[in-house]
Amino acid sequence: MEILRLNQISPDQVIFLQWGFVKISATLVYTWLIMGILIALALLVGRKATSDVKISRWQNLLEVVVSSIREQIHEVSQDNPDHYTVFIGTLFLFIGLSNLLLIVPGYVAPTSSLTTTSALAVTVFLSVPIYGISKNGLSYFKEYFQPTFIFFPFHVMGEFTRTLALAIRLFGNIMSHDKVIAILLAVTPLFFPIVMHALGLLIGMVQAYIFSILAMVYIASVTQAHHHEEKVH
């Protein structure tokens, strides 16, 4: 079953239902699938989560994942990971699972849609000032005028470009890999696509890691910078 034809770049182009403005595209459907898997897993495991020494394998897996995320956050932010776990962790889990499922035939990764990656990049773009203000108050905006006010446009430009880079990087990697696999299947249907799939899993996880770590770095840059300033003063 081929959902996304080779000539279709984005799953947005695959529309299952449409009522005027509202379009239920493959992107949304697969996004809901991933959300459903994650929430079901969370419900199943989280409901029986216990602090006993003996725990289920699934709880163990999720504990390993969550504690690894928190460790990474702590390493980057040097701060209490509780504030960032929900946002960064959800980014990682969503993108990671979205990319992992690429090995399932008939699956189309929502992250191969520029719309999805842009939406995620925009949430990062918005979260930076939100975290900055919640952490440092309105003095967060002073960062845009450092070291002098002349740098303000460059700061703003930097915010936009890095957001764009986030979106394009993830989209480009996943989309191109998707296409490469499709083309390779047409050219050499045996063995080689398997290797490329394995490579795809690695690339997918690396991209999920890069996306969430960069998001954390951007957030930490505004919370940490102010910390350093306070220490200097």
Partner: peptide, 22 residues
């Protein structure tokens, strides 16, 4: 919106409980 919903649900069902258990 999907992302925000997912984040909210995961916070409630996953992170809070797992972190609390840990």
């Amino acid at each position: 919106i999907n992302f925000l919903i997912l984040a909210a649900l995961l916070k409630y069902f996953l992170y809070d409980r797992i972190v609390k258990a840990m």
